[in-house]
Design a protein around this nucleic acid. Structure first.
Lengths: 120, 120
DNA sequence: GTAATAGTAAACCATATGGTTTACTATTAA
DNA sequence: TTAATAGTAAACCATATGGTTTACTATTAC
């Protein structure tokens, strides 16, 4: 049975490129962390960073194109909010490999209990 | 209580940059998928791709620098193997946001049962 | 010893990334 | 209406990325 533990048919796609690339920058991960506390305007988001406003604006656009940030414009203020669904996709991809780093009895039993499609 | 559900003190660092950047390319994710079946030599890894051998070699070096691939040289053959631990780091970061995309009763109860340090 | 194989190194190219500054638009406030 | 504020746009720059081809080293096989 243990020989069947491997990762076939892992869901993938070009959108995962955008999501993982967006996550591959500490500034953007900090923006996500901030937005997980609730929506914020661009100036507010930029304030903690030692970086120009246009630079933060670019990072926000990268997050937006990855689907991680949604923007609602009211007057001159752009309210940014976190859309966590692409994080779920990324987590789903990583989840296929969890068994390789976490081979305790608990995680193994979780794997066999919860994951129906072990081999496709 | 629900107002306390947010992600403070998320572990982060420059190594996560390398890991997420490494994952932000479909070729490299496919290399990881292949290596999750067991070690392989470079030529073997390159075979499925419509890409030159040096190109695959570069991708492997990106994975290596992110700590995701280990290399053992025996003679002229480089045996590459997957090191899943950086995936665990990436998964750990994403895990802090799981509650935002997965707010079913099950995941919420899991969150309150398993995650000790809810607010730091 | 000669030829094939495994793989990297280096030079090159086009495009992307991450930052800057300056200039601009649009909205709000005095 | 004039000034301040929020934010983008555009031009620019240095470096990184993802690919190529050609050349090279080292090992294995005949």
């Amino acid at each position: 049975m243990l020989s069947t533990i491997h990762a076939d048919h892992v869901s993938d796609g070009p959108n995962l490129d955008l999501v993982f690339k967006a996550l591959g920058d500490q500034t953007r991960r900090e923006l996500i962390a901030r937005l997980s506390d609730g929506p914020a305007m661009v100036t507010e988001l930029a304030e903690p960073f030692n970086m120009s406003l246009p630079a933060v604006g670019k990072h926000l656009r990268v997050l937006e194109k990855a689907g991680l940030v949604k923007r609602a414009i009211t007057g001159r203020v752009h309210w940014c909010s976190l859309n966590p669904l692409p994080l779920k996709d990324a987590g789903g991809w990583l989840g296929h490999y969890q068994k390789f780093w976490d081979t305790t009895l608990d995680s193994l039993s979780e794997y066999f209990e919860n994951d129906i499609d072990h081999d496709g």
